[in-house]
Design a protein around this nucleic acid. Structure first.
Lengths: 131, 131
DNA sequence: TATAGGCCTTCCAGTTACTGGAGGGTCAAG
DNA sequence: CTTGACCCTCCAGTAACTGGAAGGCCTATA
């Protein structure tokens, strides 16, 4: 099937699919006219990648996961390791976001939000508040 | 003061400081030898940017915040708007991360993590589980 | 005075994961 | 035979740095 159809089925933009070919994640066949000709397996692989990306795995992690997926003899421990590492990253990011959120929402609450130039948000950013 | 000193005081790497000059966030003076010569105001501005970045503002948002900070006549409403928009972004990101976290941690729990090749994480990514 | 080290300078390239656009070929329908 | 929807490649740009090469400057010590 052509790239347009593949795009619809995988939910990935055509540009992204071509990019994934560029970096060697997939290697679709080519027709006589030079068009890419995707198999169901290709589509499946793209869906796999799309799912992994949606879970926040990097493209390189997806590459690892695919090769593990295609290796019948791999240990599930390898996969679990990647997932667990990733989970740890997610936890760190969530904590950081939480801290940002708390600070910012406190500042927004304190800010009058009117036409007066006195603004606690800027004061805080400038470090004027020694709290 | 030189860039090394400035780096220590602002907590930003020298590379980053030069980059900020490149994109016009700061304009430190130059000594006769061509070295950058940072004033306390420059350091203060860099600290301001560092704080903003730590709160997740983009560099462009920091640029806006700085110009608002330097404008005595700005309305605090403008600042509040930027902060509130950013707060909304943070909430979205946190919800996304939470969803990722929940899915992944469930998968990690289900995964045996041993030498057997049967792995629920990969099955999920492949969409084999029609849950 | 030579030299060693630790600064400082610029510039170029690479990172991640795409995205946009130019310029041009192909295909199916009317 | 033309029109419009596809498809192709290649180049450049995005955000926000980061790394490294090649070279200048400054200070202290032998």
């Amino acid at each position: 099937m052509n790239i347009g159809q593949t795009s619809k089925r995988s939910g990935l933009p055509t540009k992204t699919i071509r990019y994934y070919e560029d970096i060697g994640l997939i290697s679709p066949a080519r027709g006589a006219n030079g068009y890419r000709d995707f198999s169901d397996t290709d589509v499946h692989k793209l869906q796999f990648i799309a799912r992994g990306r949606a879970l926040g795995f990097s493209v390189e992690e997806c590459r690892q996961l695919i090769s593990l997926y295609e290796d019948q003899n791999r240990a599930s421990e390898s996969v679990r390791r990647i997932a667990k590492d990733h989970l740890a990253d997610i936890k760190v990011k969530m904590a950081e976001l939480q801290a940002m959120h708390d600070t910012l929402s406190e500042l927004v609450t304190k800010c009058a939000g009117d036409d007066r130039p006195d603004c606690p948000i800027l004061k805080d950013l400038a470090g004027t508040n020694k709290t």
